[in-house]
Simulated scan of single mutants.
Amino acid sequence: MDEQIRVGITGVGGLGTDLGRGFEHVEGATVAAVADVDAGNRAAAAEALGVPVADRYESHEAMLAGADLDAVVVATPHTLHYEQVVAAMERGLHVLCEKPLCTDVGHARDLVERDDASERVLMVGYQRHLSPVYATARERVEAGDGPNYVTAEVTQDWIEAQRDAWRGDPDRSGGGQLYDTGSHLVDAVLWVTGLTPVAVNARMVFDDDAERVDKQAALNVEFAEGAVASLAVSGDTPRTREHLHVWDDEGAVYVEGEGWSRRELSVLDADGTVTVPGTDDWEWESKPAAFVECIREGREPPATARDALAVTAVTEAAYESARTGDTVDVDSSP
């Protein structure tokens, strides 16, 4: 494919516009249309991205029907993802969908099946797959005999900002902090370790009486390979910090950082010796760049529908466990 890749973006109130700006730095790609139910968001994004008035749409469906597109970006509230991704795939378009891919395990399985039957790219916006720090950690884990113990945590000042926004509305978000930033943490654990989750026991602090919007979550995850993991997600803390520690018989690999950009890598040998590779010049590839590269080269995206299915399966089991007090089985098979 040598011609310009024309991209439409659905949901431009925040992240969608940021992704659109990312395409400005990708050779051979252009944002050709935008869609958003909010007229102000739509106009502001279109002006920022140079989209003509004729290619600004009030709905995803109208954009798919009216615009000449090769690919779409879905950056809408989580519970809208499934139907919007299906609609785009049925028109033969490549799709970059922000995380989580969907909030229902059955829907996630359906998208895996559709993806398997399609020659188009379906990429999920789990950007840690594009981080050389996380990728190097994954390579270190793959070179060993398999993890036996994992801890991971992310903290963020989330609930106060999101309580009255769509992320605080479970009908649109699918849940709370675990389905938002926590989704990245669950994905990082599963992708870096390559482990198969089989059961989850979770406890949560909910922000609502209906127990749908969590602001704190603690998950103990069991894996088919015999390993265990402890995950903590907080949306009610003053600083953004993240860590992932993966232990095996040969030592451990640590990924740690503060804020949303840099992450540091440490490798521990079996005798406790710590090595810290220099990572100052390690750059993350952008999601738009990776997406376009996959389209042009016809290759599998960094984060796939199968990756997303496993995350949704763990997340849904965690919510069930937190509400019932039971350990809940996880089936992440397609």
Rank of each mutant, 00 (worst) to 15 (best):
S59T: 15
G13K: 01
I9P: 00
V267K: 00
V34Y: 05
D280E: 13
E283G: 07
Y57W: 13
D115P: 06
T327P: 11
A65C: 05
D236K: 04
D209C: 05
S266C: 05
G20L: 10
G325I: 13
H60I: 04
Q4H: 00
R91Q: 15
L130E: 08
A310N: 11
V198R: 15
A39K: 08
T155V: 06
Y179I: 12
G251L: 00
G11S: 03
D271Q: 01
G106F: 11
A88F: 11
A308T: 06
L178I: 09
A218F: 05
A270H: 00
G66I: 03
D329P: 15
E98P: 04
D326E: 15
G174R: 11
D116R: 15
A188T: 02
P100Q: 12
D281L: 09
Y82D: 03
A143Y: 06
E242S: 13
G11V: 03
R239V: 14
T17F: 01
M204A: 12
P132R: 05
A202G: 11
E61P: 01
P100M: 13
G146A: 02
A161R: 14
E300Q: 13
A33R: 06
E293T: 07
R120V: 07
T240W: 14
R323K: 13
T312R: 04
R114G: 12
P334W: 13
C97P: 04
T275M: 08
L268K: 03
A35R: 04
Q177E: 11
V72M: 03
A88Y: 12
R262E: 15
D2K: 06
R241G: 09
V198G: 10
A62L: 14
A135T: 14
L101C: 05
G16W: 08
V154F: 11
V73C: 05
R323M: 11
A224F: 07
G125D: 07
E316T: 15
L69D: 02
D236M: 06
V150G: 03
E225W: 11
A46C: 08
V74N: 02
G235R: 06
D208A: 12
W247Y: 15
Q162D: 06
A217D: 11
A270F: 00
G235Q: 07
T327G: 06
E47W: 01
Y57F: 15
D207G: 12
E285L: 07
D214T: 10
S118N: 09
D249H: 08
A54L: 08
R203A: 15
V314Y: 10
D214K: 07
P288D: 02
A43D: 13
G28Q: 02
F223L: 10
T151K: 02
E47Y: 02
E242C: 09
V26T: 01
R56L: 07
A188Q: 07
V205M: 07
G226K: 02
Q177F: 13
T312S: 12
L49M: 04
T324E: 14
D209L: 14
R6N: 01
R42H: 04
G174E: 11
N201T: 14
D209S: 14
H81M: 06
L49Q: 04
D110H: 15
R296V: 03
T324V: 13
R114W: 12
A165K: 13
